[in-house]
């Protein structure tokens, strides 16, 4: 029997990285301020002391170069974990991610694989304004050739990383900043959930809330509220955005006949659009309501708290969208914005 312990997302990720590094000498961590500083969010605090500067490598502010170097080292047989401080800075490395990591296997005719893990913090909601609040998980999921995962539970913060390291292809792990301080139960041994599998976090018969990462806690809270008014929401945690686990999504929607997709990214051309389209393609005749969406307003995130909150998904907005789905309609934008 596996023991269960409570820990924070930060501790869980640190344990995951440390365990991987103890088990496999090919694994090393590199990124900005991961060593001496202990990690910008204190995730790698203490790891320099245990593993030394060869394996906990501080990098200069050179996102493109060190992500590319991670790709090269992976090709050369290492198992690098590259930490990009936040997704906002990953844009400086996008060429390496998209034009090298994602394409090398294909354009070399299968000869050159890139077993690389890139971790980055994502998400808004902390009044960090337009350049420091991006949620581009779905945007990265657009790219064939990489895998994109987003842990939404502390258990996944602890156990997803090893699955990502075991994968022969590049995996990007999006860690929502709000989850570093959150705590939750974590089993001592690998619960064995495949990297690409979605998981039902709360069963319910009336509608499916499909989400991942930072909006998972919000959907669980919304499901509690809905339960109080007699609506039983099922919460599906996607976990992986590329590939998407269609089977789990459709099984849920086929049972509930209604779905609301909740994503912290922008609505247009986002992951919520992709999930809704797949439900339409694969479960259209099971639906009793159009698929609803709760996503972030189509603006760079503003600094003031009241505007930022109005722009982002919230429990109230999810509840409003769920109620509308129960009435066979989608919430109109005004209804959601003022909720």
């Amino acid at each position: 029997m596996s023991e269960i312990r409570d820990m924070t997302g930060r501790e869980a990720m640190r344990e995951a990285m440390s365990a991987a590094m103890r088990a496999d000498p090919r694994v090393f961590l590199m990124g900005e301020d991961v060593g001496e500083y202990g990690g910008c969010f204190a995730v790698s605090m203490g790891m320099l002391e245990e593993f030394g500067p060869e394996r906990i490598r501080d990098t200069p502010l050179s996102e493109s170069a060190f992500v590319g170097a991670g790709i090269g080292a992976a090709i050369a047989g290492m198992r690098p974990i590259v930490e990009i401080m936040t997704v906002n800075f990953s844009l400086l490395a996008l060429d390496q991610i998209m034009n090298n990591a994602a394409t090398l296997r294909h354009m070399s005719g299968g000869q050159v694989g890139v077993p690389l893990v890139i971790r980055m913090t994502t998400g808004g909601g902390r009044q960090l304004a337009a350049q420091h609040s991006h949620s581009l998980d779905g945007w990265y999921a657009h790219i064939p050739g990489i895998k994109v995962v987003a842990p939404g539970t502390i258990e996944d913060f602890r156990w997803m990383l090893q699955r990502a390291l075991d994968d022969p292809d590049p995996v990007i792990v999006f860690e929502n900043g709000a989850l570093y301080n959150a705590s939750g139960p974590v089993p001592d041994t690998d619960p064995g959930v495949p990297l690409e599998r979605a998981v039902v976090r709360r069963p319910g018969r009336d509608l499916s809330l499909v989400t991942f990462g930072g909006t998972l806690p919000l959907c669980l809270a919304a499901a509690d509220e809905l339960a109080a008014e007699g609506i039983e929401a099922e919460v599906v945690d996607l976990r992986s955005l590329r590939p998407l686990d269609d089977a789990t999504i459709m099984a849920s929607v086929q049972a509930t006949h209604r779905a609301v997709v909740v994503d912290e990214g922008w609505r247009s051309v986002g992951i919520s659009a992709e999930v809704a389209a797949r439900i339409m393609e694969q479960a259209f005749y099971d639906l009793d309501a159009p698929v609803g969406r709760v996503a972030t307003a189509e603006i760079p995130l503003p600094y003031p708290d009241h505007l930022e909150r109005a722009a982002m998904p919230s429990v109230a907005k999810v509840v409003a969208a769920a109620r509308a789905a129960m009435q066979g309609r989608v919430a109109d934008p005004g209804e959601v914005v003022t909720a």
Partner: peptide, 22 residues
């Protein structure tokens, strides 16, 4: 008010930010 501490702008005075990406 949209930018906060990291995004001070004043185009009239030709102060162009306030950039938070190194």
């Amino acid at each position: 008010g949209r930018g906060g501490s990291m995004h001070l702008f004043d185009a009239g005075r030709r102060f162009y930010g306030g950039n938070a990406i190194v």
